[in-house]
């Protein structure tokens, strides 16, 4: 965990309301793992007061990239950053996706901006592992392919990929690849993850999910980000997660 001011190197729009922010963060590079996040202060004022959590989307040389969607004041301020501006980042925080060579095929499922952590995850996958990306969007305008390959889309309005949700897409895809030894990594809105939980439980498929919660600190001191585990105890999303085995938590 380190706190530092970092410089914006680029801040590019890659799809509707979706941006890719690149910052120079040399000191952090040896420590960052796929699935981890940073808590970012978007300005020096007391409004917005709190930091905003963002997944590590990619690492390129000495730079870390964040992929974000503009949803409110904090992300709007981020979207206005230009080259040379400073932001203050705290991290890396949380645990990571557990990548190993034990599964033949990895499926990455991203619902909307939930796709953010996968470019870096893909880079860390062993070469022997096959993977595919299932990207669920509302409409074609949200589509991009930054850092992704082997992408299949689903969209609510049918403008890209299948008309339907990512779980329907997953069902079709699993039949197509006819592979038993599969592991899923997923990130996206809670209703999607809940449906995925039911699906993977029924089919007994290994699955890890990255969860979200409102956060104040991001490193375990405020108790603001609980998630109930299967033993009815609270775990902290920021510290015990954000990545959980889908069997261990109540969504």
């Amino acid at each position: 965990m380190l706190i530092k001011d970092v410089f914006v190197q680029s801040n590019q729009k890659i799809a509707e309301n979706t941006f890719l922010l690149k910052v120079n963060a040399e000191e952090y590079i040896p420590y960052v793992k796929p699935g981890q996040f940073f808590n970012i202060k978007v300005n020096n004022n007391s409004y917005p007061l709190l930091r905003r959590p963002f997944s590590i989307s990619d690492v390129e040389g000495d730079s870390i990239l964040f992929m974000y969607k503009v949803v409110g004041e904090g992300t709007r301020i981020l979207a206005n950053k230009v080259v040379g501006d400073q932001i203050n980042i705290l991290g890396p925080l949380g645990n990571q996706f557990s990548i190993n060579e034990s599964s033949n095929h990895v499926i990455l499922i991203g619902g909307g901006i939930g796709i953010a952590p996968f470019p870096y995850l893909i880079k860390q996958l062993p070469n022997s592992v096959k993977y595919s990306v299932l990207f669920g969007v509302r409409t074609e305008k949200e589509v991009h392919s930054y850092g992704l390959k082997n992408i299949l889309y689903s969209s609510d309005d049918g403008t890209v990929g299948i008309k339907g949700n990512t779980i329907e897409l997953l069902d079709i895809h699993l039949k197509q690849i006819a592979e038993k030894d599969v592991k899923i990594f997923a990130c996206g809105p809670n209703p999607m993850l809940k449906a995925l939980q039911e699906y993977t439980n029924n089919k007994n498929i290994e699955c890890e999910v990255s969860m979200e919660s409102a956060m104040a600190c991001g490193f375990g001191i405020c108790q603001g980000c609980p998630i109930e585990n299967k033993d009815n105890n609270y775990k902290l999303i920021c510290k015990d997660g954000p990545v959980f085995n889908i069997r261990d938590i109540m969504i």
């Binding site: 409004y47 956060m215 603001g224 980000c225 609980p226």
Partner: peptide, 22 residues
């Protein structure tokens, strides 16, 4: 155990918490 989520929300130059003494 504390209160169920959501436990915190940001407000103008402040925040509300209902951790529930976890």
């Amino acid at each position: 155990k504390g209160n169920p989520p959501q436990r915190i929300v940001e407000t103008s130059s402040g925040m509300l918490n209902a951790i529930g003494l976890a």
